[in-house]
Design a protein around this nucleic acid. Structure first.
Lengths: 239, 239
DNA sequence: AAATATTAAAACATCTGATGTTTTAATATT
DNA sequence: AATATTAAAACATCAGATGTTTTAATATTT
């Protein structure tokens, strides 16, 4: 019925105005806003209020303020890092169960893998093979390394050429790694992941979309089982 | 190789510290930080710098600062609205093609619909039928209404009980509506959407997951075609 | 002439302290 | 008991002083 009453802070007002100008196309990435002094006069507010607005816009990733003679406030495209970080703030509080991550991943990643099997270039395949090789080398180095795993899934996602798909897969992986993770995953886990990755690349190399899809689904479910088992065993979380 | 050099602004430092305290569990939603005066002394910075940090944390949705005697800075859970808005900032610049939206949706929504057909409670179905009824009433009222459409897809997503799925579907819909939208979609479009929704609810009512999935996929592809055609025709965008 | 060092200015960064506004809780009044 | 008043806590805003960074222009050296 009613909409939550808004803040009437001057800085919010300025944030809204500038954000709208950006989303409305009046301000474009690279554009420089007038200096603090000028802009505060234009808005009819103090420098302090304007600066508070700048800090908010920077947090959103819409602005970058640089010091120095050729400095100032520049409009920027929101970068991936900022977007993922801001999304993470939300997911953190949702604290989804592993099966929620798994379910969503099982919708997206097998489908993406299927498409990747059709689209992958020789270079794509080479990069994935490199990833496998690096993973293999780390296999008996003890703890599970998330970096190469994250990279593996990222590469496959990016073969689809769909930036939204890529972003979601990345963000999910990132969130799992940062929230659920640091479960003490043993070497058996690493090996299973490696074997699954191998089968997926194999299917990709064979240009076999259906197998690629199936193997990815199997991989995701297998990881789910292992992580869930690990959680249930109440192995220590390391924040 | 190298990581982009970071700002060394005092406010960023404070933002990082407080964000980490929240994500690390030292600060929980509802907790009140010390007053500006106290905190600025603890950090050894001026009130102005602290306030800049507060504005950034508010933009991230992690803090809510209230005026008045019982006011102060309170830790908050990032709410859906903030998360969607922040994600939108990113998607806006990516400006994905309609087919990118469609592709991702076609991964998620049919799968969600399939699950919804298994899980839907009588209440869920009643609400969807209400949505249909309202949509029907607006059918010949002229322009396409996004509200009920958005609600329809949201309801189905939420039946899955998976908050991540729900969030992604919501956010995609929201982004389409705000970026691509305001294409001049004609009544034929509205009718096709309505018919598709009807078929989906029908399948849901019959507890027929497979049909539900197929119909959702068909719906999404159909909408894609119509929107693409509308774009190609270069019908006017209304910002 | 080219390379290097110096300097000045533009623009942000931070601090201080004064004043205003909001909100709540305690108190006084009806 | 209900209502009105008031005081205090805490944020909101402003003005202005001072510091730091960065760049561009200038001067100096090779």
């Amino acid at each position: 019925m009613f909409i939550p009453a808004k803040t009437n802070r001057i800085s919010s007002n300025i944030v809204d105005q500038i954000r709208k100008a950006i989303l409305g196309g009046d301000l474009k990435p690279g554009d420089r806003l007038p200096s603090e002094k000028e802009l505060s006069q234009q808005f009819g507010v103090s420098k302090a209020s304007l600066r508070e607005a700048f800090r908010a816009l920077e947090a959103l990733g819409l602005l970058e303020v640089r010091q120095g003679m050729a400095g100032g406030a520049f409009v920027t495209e929101v970068n991936l890092e900022t977007a993922r970080s801001n999304l993470f703030n939300y997911i953190f509080f949702q604290n989804p169960a592993i099966h929620e991550f798994t379910e969503l991943r099982s919708f997206i990643e097998p489908a993406a893998a299927e498409i990747a099997a059709r689209k992958a270039s020789p270079k794509d395949i080479r990069e994935l093979e490199q990833n496998l090789e690096r993973t293999r080398k780390k296999l008996d180095a003890g703890p599970f390394y998330y970096d190469l795993d994250t990279q593996f899934h990222h590469r496959i996602a990016s073969i689809t050429g769909n930036r939204l798909v890529c972003f979601v897969i990345d963000s999910l992986k990132n969130a799992i790694v940062n929230i659920k993770l640091e479960l003490e995953l043993d070497q058996a886990f690493s090996v299973k992941v490696f074997e699954a990755h191998k089968r997926i690349v194999e299917a990709l190399r064979n240009r076999d979309p259906e197998t690629c899809r199936v193997e990815m689904l199997r991989h995701i479910r297998e990881v789910d089982e292992m992580m869930t088992a690990c959680c249930d065993a109440e192995k220590p979380f390391v924040a």
